[in-house]
Design a protein around this nucleic acid. Sequence first.
DNA 1: CTGAAAGCGCTAACAA
DNA 2: TTGTTAGCGCTTTCAG
Lengths: 343, 343
Amino acid sequence: MVSRRITIVDVARHAGVSTTAVSKVLRNAYGASPEMQAKVRAAIQELGYRPSAAARGLRGQTYTIGVLLPDLRNPFFADILDGIAERLGGTDYQVLMASSGNDQQGEARLTEAMIDRSMDGVVLIAPVASPRRLQSVARTVPTVVVGRHGHSPDYDTVTDDDFSGAALVVDHLVGLGHRRIAHIEHLETDAVRLREMPNARRADGYRHAMRAHGLGDQIDIAATSYTREGGYAGARELLSREPRPTAIFAGADIVAMGVFDALAEAGLSAPADVSLAGYDDTTFASFGPISLTTVDQAGHQMGGQAARLLLERIGDRGRPTSQVRLSPALVTRGTTAAPGAGP
Amino acid sequence: MVSRRITIVDVARHAGVSTTAVSKVLRNAYGASPEMQAKVRAAIQELGYRPSAAARGLRGQTYTIGVLLPDLRNPFFADILDGIAERLGGTDYQVLMASSGNDQQGEARLTEAMIDRSMDGVVLIAPVASPRRLQSVARTVPTVVVGRHGHSPDYDTVTDDDFSGAALVVDHLVGLGHRRIAHIEHLETDAVRLREMPNARRADGYRHAMRAHGLGDQIDIAATSYTREGGYAGARELLSREPRPTAIFAGADIVAMGVFDALAEAGLSAPADVSLAGYDDTTFASFGPISLTTVDQAGHQMGGQAARLLLERIGDRGRPTSQVRLSPALVTRGTTAAPGAGP
DNA sequence: CTGAAAGCGCTAACAA
DNA sequence: TTGTTAGCGCTTTCAG
């Protein structure tokens, strides 16, 4: 026989107060004397009471924050999650995640699922949805969008200056003497995403920087996806070019990982045969045998800022939205060198 | 002005039926004629109705499955997640994850959080909680435990035969001619976990296999943690031994990653200076420049089995628990070779 | 500051 | 097969 759930009524009775009083203590709400608080807390302890989120959600908050991430395998997102978790530690909020597989339908289903579950707020990491949909989500639930450019009166954003970040890489490679610098990007066809997605901004930054160096005719892009497979396919494509690029700028570290696969397969190595740079400065980039030159976009900070903004918006849904933009920094490691510097 | 939420009452009115009827259609429950179903579904479509999980949870199910994973950075868990997601695709269940950071307290908080949120079932991946706690969780909510040995009448389990898996590695290394084979394990002090955790079973398997080969005196274990940092620390410790081991068996691929860090730092490489094997066959192991010899424990299948068992248990909480044990397979790649086979 | 009472949106008995 | 009705456990007016 399963024992009956302990409810707020039990706590109230045990403490000799009203259920309202218990509820107030639970929510740290105004209007409960210290003695009453003490009594209630004691009763909660003694009975081992746990509030039901479902019941709370029916009227008030669920104290749940949903985080939507595109891909569990991209270690960059773990950095963001850490930042969120750190900022939310100590609050009553719990973080629940879902992975969309970078798929527009899956993403939509999951945001709906989060809304259905009365989450108090959501953090959408690099979502692919249309602005219309994002607006609609944000009007339903407090929302912070991470990594996607484009403003809205309904949601806050945290982004990295991807355009400049890409330029940092190109500048670095050009400084080393490279001219045939190719880029692997995440294929984007939608006009809006072409403007708002970080991958598109990086590609733009790449093109712009190349032209600024008078290398407009050297622009060479393989458009695949921000996955290891995408990096592999993109690198195979680029390595078959005649003449072969002397440097590859992968739009993300996870993409660079795929490039390594292709290099290994072709019997090439970085930087001996090709210089290689990534983006994100994931823990993978610092991996000893790899030591990937990359761009640090401070995922941990991004997560922290996102959590902060979300809490503020949950606190006051009417406040004007803000856009936090962080500055990227180049992290020079071992995979980039002067061209032809091979053994 | 925010528009009022659309509820089951609106749908019922719009369709000209009772709320019960709508509820039945929602749950695919018995007792609704095809015409009624059609009417209700039409109304749901037209109104854009979405059921509130909070309200449902108060009486029935929430259609939410919680997955607790120890560490977002260990790519092995992504394989398990894929398996779970695949099995649950097409059902009405949504998967929500939480990461405990391999911390006993964090894990406890998160399981509580899942219970508080009336999840219909939970999958606990390599949990560190005491069996007492696991039992208590499992008696509250349908539970499947993945990767942890030890039976219970209250929860189902899915495990890999870690003991044999470790033996596969040792056999392989001995076959190559190694004798000084060291192991890096996740430090475990708790008596129960020493019996139940996969890391402990792998260490046991290592010891047993070493003895079976008459190498009992060569047993050498560095006990750190199943993280990249743990691998780094463990490798530093082992590499300082005199004489240095000729092979290192890391208890997990993520640990092997840390070993690579230490090797790179020491100017050594695998397999030239030291042979190296991991465990899990994560996507990282197949990474081109690494090509890690490892043990495939079929995370994808484990996830699929876990999801299947969970659905069965949700369907019938009284059914006897089952233990699914999968067999590991050695994946020989480039990081293991005969000792002294260096360049 | 405290408590009584009315729901929140849904499901589960029960009746019809 | 269909509908009526009483809650699920909590928060929120609104009186006291």
